[in-house]
Design a protein around this nucleic acid. Sequence first.
DNA 1: AGCACA
Length: 451
Amino acid sequence: MSSVSSQTQFRYAQPPSKVLHLRNLPWECTEEELIELGKPFGKVINTKCNVGANRNQAFIEFADLNQAIAMISYYASSSEPAQVRGKTVYLQYSNRQEIVHNKTTGDVAGNVLLVTIEGVGARDVSIDVLHLVFSAFGFVHKIATFEKTAGFQVLVQFSDSETASAAKEALDGRSIPRYLLPEHVSTCTLRITFSGHTDLTVKFQSHRSRDYTNPNLPVASSAMDGSGQFIAGFDAKKQEPESNVLLASIENMQYPVTVDVLHMVFSTFGPVQKIAMFEKNGGFQALIQYPDVQTAVVAKEALEGHCIYDGGFCKLHLSYSRHTDLSVKVNNDRSRDYTIPDTSIGMLNTQPSILGQQPGPMMGPAAVPHYGGAHPFALAGNGIMGGVPAVPGYAGVSHQTMPPMSMQLPNNTYMPPPPGAMPPAMGPGMMQFPSQSGQQPPGTAMPSYRQ
DNA sequence: AGCACA
């Protein structure tokens, strides 16, 4: 307590400043609009928009104090209020003398993203789903999740800031597809900024942190911290010896699962080298070979328990095979070797009717980081919630490079989305995923973020 | 509709 009180001010009557504080601005007001507004009164040398919790406040800084005074005076006596896009804007002197751009975080592009997930039950979004979502843009090195006052937050580490920027650009403000979420979780909107971090420290593979660059990292067993929910889950499963070859058991196979379908599904995570299908005690199984263990691990994590088709059909159960190299002697409808150069031709010839797809080792994320990443959603967690089918080519992915998938099956529950359904430039508020499934009414899928 | 991530 000192003698500041001699300067008794009315709470909102600020002394003049060349910085003006504006409020009640329209959503996503631009710097240009602010400059337009101030221009008649002087030279606007700095602005800061989207300020405050509602992001509807801003500051403009004039070159000269008199210019700021001119603007305030004008609108103080004007019958027409200051307006932006027809919305009345309230002006006053700022309590600061200059605009400070706090660029410490959030605006400086880095390779690590800070993601805040808004939504009821957001903390129940699994790390695997997050991995899936962000893998669409490139290799995800590490993920760490934590809870702060801001809510459920996630740090996602990419190789470089370009990749991170691409992910941020595409996903900020969008929502995780409904069918990737547990039912009790509401629409989860992603708010993304750049983190100041460049390399995360992940000590354990756990339900809240992963290091995808280090498969040998110990799995946290009891090392989970106190917030313990349903911890054990997949952490236990990870103990089994990993392999580059996955054994897939297909449960409830009401619809044919072809080698091509499997190839499509598993190519999402990297190049598939070989596939062999066979029947075992009445059930269907397949071996899928990747070039490396790591890819297999990612694929297994992402696909385990998911269904290829809506309605719980063709549910995948994955384990690691003891094989490391499958011997595929002949390419037929049960086995395929994609490492043999002209396999693809033979494949198209043998199975042209179903797919007409480009077979492709080139479809792996590793090979085509920017677009390839889109695939992780192909099969995406529909299985988790018995949701939507695997339909590739969602988020702005060129349909030339992603031919319609093998969902043209006897099952007409879903078809590939119509060409116009997923424009490359997505509308506000949503990652564009097919919502043909009756389980995902468009209304819930496409919340409006505009006001 | 009220001051800038604490």
